[in-house]
Simulated scan of single mutants.
Amino acid sequence: MRCPVCGAPETRVIETRSSDEGRVNRRRRECPECQSRFTTYERLEEKSYLWVVKKDGRRESFDRDKLIRGFQHACEKLPVALETIEAAAARIEERVRASGQGEISTTVLGEMAAEELRGINKVAYVRFASVYREFTDISSFTNEISRLLDDKEAHRNG
């Protein structure tokens, strides 16, 4: 693995961990030339393509990293670990692949992402929902927050 800082052709692995329920190897590496450290992720390349169907009908390939970036944006400045975000993205990808459909609409994908975030962090969920569901006024926010509070109260009493 080439060093991203100095470009040295060889780096050494200093730690390896399995993540994403054993589907990903996370490796901490160090460059012997400049001593910089960085992390790489190794995952099995999936053979079958997944397609995302946009609202206007266009299709693009499923991009787990794009989903992770969306989660990271929603979780910005919140106490949510990267591993939690990656696991959520992996669960969504696994669900889509298990469906056998080969494609998914952005509407369904967005609902799956919102569902994952709702279980991870309520603030992140509201942030994501406000963009995904295109909240246009304060009543949209208050309605969604009221739903969350009602769910919390139902769990407490149920």
Score class of each variant (00 low, 15 high):
62 F>E: 01
86 E>S: 04
68 I>M: 07
117 L>W: 02
92 I>D: 00
39 T>E: 12
54 K>P: 03
123 V>G: 03
31 C>W: 09
23 R>W: 10
72 Q>W: 10
44 L>V: 15
99 S>Y: 00
66 K>F: 12
93 E>H: 01
82 L>H: 11
46 E>G: 07
62 F>H: 08
47 K>N: 13
59 R>G: 10
111 E>I: 02
43 R>T: 07
98 A>V: 10
139 S>C: 01
73 H>T: 14
133 R>K: 12
14 I>W: 10
57 G>P: 07
53 V>Y: 01
25 N>T: 13
101 Q>W: 01
123 V>C: 02
16 T>P: 05
88 A>D: 04
47 K>L: 11
29 R>K: 10
18 S>I: 10
128 F>I: 00
21 E>H: 08
47 K>D: 15
50 L>T: 13
100 G>T: 11
111 E>W: 07
48 S>N: 15
76 E>G: 05
95 R>C: 01
96 V>M: 07
93 E>T: 00
132 Y>L: 00
95 R>D: 06
102 G>Q: 06
65 D>K: 08
65 D>M: 09
118 R>P: 02
65 D>V: 09
17 R>Q: 11
98 A>R: 12
34 C>G: 00
98 A>H: 07
72 Q>E: 15
115 E>D: 05
58 R>E: 14
32 P>T: 11
112 M>S: 01
101 Q>S: 11
98 A>W: 01
100 G>M: 10
103 E>R: 02
105 S>G: 11
99 S>W: 00
109 L>G: 01
45 E>P: 07
119 G>L: 01
82 L>E: 13
38 F>C: 00
60 E>C: 04
18 S>E: 15
109 L>T: 04
85 I>L: 15
20 D>A: 13
134 E>K: 12
107 T>F: 03
139 S>D: 13
17 R>Y: 09
46 E>Q: 14
72 Q>F: 08
93 E>L: 00
26 R>C: 05
82 L>C: 04
89 A>M: 06
101 Q>I: 04
104 I>S: 01
102 G>T: 08
48 S>T: 15
90 A>Q: 14
113 A>Y: 05
134 E>I: 03
80 V>N: 11
26 R>D: 07
122 K>Y: 04
18 S>W: 07
41 Y>V: 04
51 W>N: 11
22 G>H: 09
96 V>K: 04
72 Q>V: 10
105 S>T: 15
66 K>D: 02
109 L>I: 03
44 L>F: 15
116 E>N: 05
52 V>T: 06
